[in-house]
Every structure is written in structure tokens, then in C-alpha cells.
Amino acid sequence: MSKRKLTIAITGLNNTDNPGPGIPVIRGILDSKLFDARIIGLAYENLEPGIYMRDLVDKSYHIPYPSAGSDILLKRIEHINKIEKIDVLIPNFDAELYSFIKSSEKLKKMGIATFLPTMEQFEERHKWNLCEFGKKYNVKVPSVKSFYSEAELYKAAPGLTFPVFVKGKFYDAYLATNAEQLRMHFYKLYSKWGFPVLLQQYIRGTEVNVVALGDGHGKTIGAVPMRKQYITDKGKAWAGITLDDEKLIEITHKIIKKSKWRGGMELELIKDEMNNLYLIEINPRLPAWVYLAVGAGQNLPEALVKLALGLKTNKYTKYDIGKLFIRYSYDLICKLEEFEQLSLYGEL
């Protein structure tokens, strides 16, 4: 069977020690037996390593930061689309998803398919809405309080118990064991991500994660649970292993069924000593460790492309248990001309 030729644009090429999901998503797509994909990298920074991985990314373009607004982003995508004729676009950053979800109809008119959560799904799973999310979908969650100013924090400070997690609006989380650490992390997070800064109850236990894909009608196309085996100082998985845990699969199916989740997702949960599962975060996209799912038998990036194109997508029912991923760093040697080309012309 000949493979279908596709042009797929992908963000999240920052394959650093705090990696974006772009490169692992690309690897999944390039492993596909159905698609022969030309990969277009969409990058925010000149030094996103994926731009220079020429065996994985055919061509890269600069795109404007989400803070520039959806219209500017769309204009840039329109320009790229005139050259590349993009079939599918897969955004991989939380911070850019709002713009892409908002623009999905306009992208469709340009002939670009996406498969993203709805705006309602995207909004209700925000960290600051987690308590309401837990109630709505009958899932245990830690208590969370949002702070929109320093004054609010000072007012609440005497009633706080430690340790507590301090979390940024989009990314980053720190454990504060006393008031001094709390203040330090609070300032760091609001200066980086703005308000709200969130304080989340600390649940003692083991963190477990699930990568999953929902079809938008309540069906789970695939789900693979993983426990981090080696964690970087930024809390990112540097190694992980697939688990055999029915409770994790059940909770994933329940959330996807009840919310009719559309697109990729990562559930972050804590399992306490009594085996209770607490949902601590939902990331509305495939995570950077998604290639472990591919290696374990569920090519979720390929399935996401199929869903985006409206193709029949069968449900994965199994995966290999005890499959490990181990990251490594690697020095790419690049020509100055390549860097120059990207810096001056915004494409490479």
C-alpha cells in the first residue's frame, strides 16, 4: 500500500532539557506506515534544536509569539501555507493553544486541519479551575487557590499549611516548605507567567502520568500510563516506564468519556499510599514523552493526524508494559549560514 503524502506543520521544536513535544510527535508521524509526511517546523526561537534536525524537519519557519495576537499569527500561517500547502497543523505548547483553538475555523478555510480541544474543554481544565473540574467529572483533586495579587497572598499567608505547591499560570511548579520559600517562588512565577499564581495542596504519594487521545465523542483512542524513573531539576522526566494500572486507565476513560475530550492530553496524577488517585493537572496536548507510547505500541501522533483528517481511527486496546524511555542530550553541529538564514529571513 502506498503511503499518503501529507504536509504537517508542527510547533514545540525546543528539544531541550525541558523539551516541547514537537520532536517526539514528529518521530511518531515519521514512523507511520500510512503517511509519507513532509514536516514543517514552526518555531518561536532561533535556537530551537528541532529546526536544525534536518533528518526530522524538512523546513522551518519563524512564527510570532502568542502574545502578538491571533491575527498576526494567522497572517504568518497564511503566508507559510501559500508556500507549503499544509494539510495538518499540530500545535504543542499550552501557551499557544488558545490562539490556535480560536483560529481553527479560519485554518480550516485555508485547508489546514487541526484536532484540538474545544475552547470550553481548554478553559475548564485550567489549573485554577481544577476543583470545579474534579466536582463536575467526579475525580479527586487537591485543593487549589488562585492568587491575583501579592496583597491577596499576604492576607492568606497566616492560614496556610506547608508544604504547598506553588504553580505558574502555564508552566513551572515549586514545592514551598515555609513562608520564605513561598514568597520567593510566588515572585518568580508571577514575574515569568503573570497572574494567577496557584497554591495547590501537597498530596504525599507517587506521581504517575497518562498520555491519551480522545476522539471528541467520548471515545479514548489510546492511553498509556507512565511513571517517571529519573527526574530533572525542572521536574521533567528524563526516563520513564509504562505501567500496568487499570485504575489509571479507568480514570482516563472516565474523564475522556464525560468531557468528550477532543485531541491529545496528558493527565498528571498522584497516587497516595491508600492507592487513591488525585488529578493534579491536565495538559491539553500530547506530552514530550509521547514517543514512549509509540514505542509501546500506540502511535498516538499518527492517530491524531488521522482524526484531524476525518479518517476512521480505531481504538488501541493494548500497549507493552515495562517499556522504558531514556532521554539523552546530543550536540548538533550547524553551519553559521543556517543560523543566519533563519535569523534574517525567518525560514530555513
Binding site: 507517587t206 507512565m226 511513571r227 524513573q229 520513564g240 516506564i241 505501567l243 500496568d244 494500572d245 508494559i321 515495562g322
Partner: peptide, 18 residues
Amino acid sequence: KKIAISESGFVFNPTTGD
């Protein structure tokens, strides 16, 4: 029942990943 034990004495608990 889920525990995997190899002849070399390597034990893997697939529920916890240990």
C-alpha cells in the same frame, strides 16, 4: 500476580514501575 520475576533475580512491579 502481576509481579514479573526473571530467572536472574530481577523483579519488576508493573503497577508501580519499581
